[in-house]
Simulated assay, not measured.
Amino acid sequence: MKKLISIVLVAAMALSMVACGGASSSAPASTGASSEAASTAASGEATSGKEITVGMITDVGGVNDRSFNQTSWEGLQALAEENPNIKVSYLESKTDADYSANIETYLSEGTDLIICVGYMLAEATKVAAEANPDQLFAIIDDSSIDLPNVACLMFSQAEASYLVGIVAGLATETNTVGYVQGMVSDSMNQFGCGFIAGVKSVNPEATVLQFNANNFGDPTGGNTAATDMITKGADVVFHAAGATGNGVIEACKANGVYAIGVDTDQAPLAPETVITSAMKRVDIAAQDISLAVANGTFTPGVHLYSLENGGVDLSPTRDLLTDEMLTAVEDAKAKIIAGEVQVPSTPEELGDGLFTLK
């Protein structure tokens, strides 16, 4: 716990932007900087001095998605600034077909650790890991790969979404809020289920409009979806949609309603619009697993980041939150950590047909 808290404090200072495809012909394996990577200070743990290389592969949202991918990359960059023995780089995936090609690029270069960002890379990661048992992999947001050379970095995203749902339920003046999801899957559905449960916990009469964008890289589609929700009365819209969510925030800003960000603190995108964000510390997870490889302590299997260990939370920018909202959120956090509140993470657990996305 002490170790992860120290990671959170330092990594939060390092981040200044927000993130959720093989590389183009002009983008070599070291695209985006082969900066040297980070966080002895952040983790409170000295590295062994062993020189390693870490290669990160984005999903189709790209490294500048201001959400999931970007946050992961910024975590590695922050790590590199503190640990000259760790070299980091990234490859962008423009389409699904690029996942395997990008993995092959890093395999051919002898990269020590390959970090695949997002469950959409799961199949390509599993195939490559099975074929290359001596190669270490990490995948963010997928726990389906049970291999001795794969670490699955998972987050209790339903818990963070529950907290922002409380904010939305208390903030709405129309009793209508919106939710835009990037794609329907077991992992992504956790966001929606947690959010709806949080809204209903403080405002049982509220309506939650829902839309599946089926795309993590379509800001225009996100804008259209949010605008439609706003015309139907939504005055708070939460997105869990990577770069698609940037369009959601733009629509909320243009219409003078609140937006809720995801993965990182998205308030800098629209300070008067983004009331809060459901944070997932993917930056810390990327740092942790990289340091483990450098120190020879890599362990496969699921590594879970939750409210209890600081891996998910409300974003630190809270200027637009009322005292009532903050009190309700802190009360809910304490009850979740104590086991008094069980946050639903599936449509079945949520019940009553409240989750409507297909």
Rank of each mutant, 00 (worst) to 15 (best):
Lys2Ser: 15
Lys3Tyr: 12
Leu4Met: 15
Ser6Lys: 15
Val8Asp: 09
Leu9Cys: 08
Ala19Leu: 12
Ala19Ser: 13
Ser26Cys: 12
Ala27Tyr: 12
Gly32Lys: 06
Gly32Glu: 03
Glu36Leu: 13
Glu36Trp: 07
Ser43Met: 13
Glu45Ile: 14
Gly49Ala: 06
Thr53Tyr: 09
Gly62Asp: 04
Asn64Tyr: 10
Asp65Phe: 09
Asn69His: 11
Trp73Met: 06
Leu76Ala: 08
Val88Lys: 10
Tyr90Arg: 15
Asn102Trp: 04
Ile103Lys: 11
Thr105Leu: 11
Met120Arg: 12
Leu121Cys: 07
Ala124Met: 08
Thr125Ile: 03
Ala129Leu: 09
Glu130Lys: 15
Asn132Gly: 11
Asp134Tyr: 06
Ile139Asp: 03
Asn149Met: 14
Ala151Gly: 14
Glu159Trp: 08
Gly165Phe: 00
Gly169Gln: 00
Ala171Cys: 01
Thr174Arg: 01
Tyr179Ile: 01
Ser185Asn: 13
Ser187Leu: 15
Asn189Arg: 10
Cys193Glu: 05
Val199Gly: 03
Ser201Thr: 10
Asn212Ser: 13
Asn212Pro: 04
Pro219Ile: 04
Thr220Gln: 13
Asn223Trp: 01
Ala226Thr: 09
Val237Asp: 00
Thr244Asp: 07
Ala251His: 01
Ala254Tyr: 02
Ala254Leu: 07
Asn255Gln: 11
Val257Leu: 03
Tyr258Trp: 11
Ala259Trp: 00
Ile260Val: 13
Ala267Asn: 13
Val274Leu: 03
Ile275His: 02
Ser277Met: 04
Ile284Gly: 04
Ala294Trp: 02
Asn295Ile: 10
Phe298Tyr: 15
Pro300Tyr: 08
Leu307Glu: 11
Ser315Asp: 14
Thr322Trp: 09
Val329Ala: 06
Ala332Tyr: 04
Ile336Lys: 06
Ile336Gly: 01
Ala338Pro: 01
Ala338Asn: 12
Glu340Phe: 04
Val343Ile: 11
Pro347Leu: 03
Leu350Ile: 10
Gly353Ser: 10
Thr356Pro: 03
Thr356Val: 13
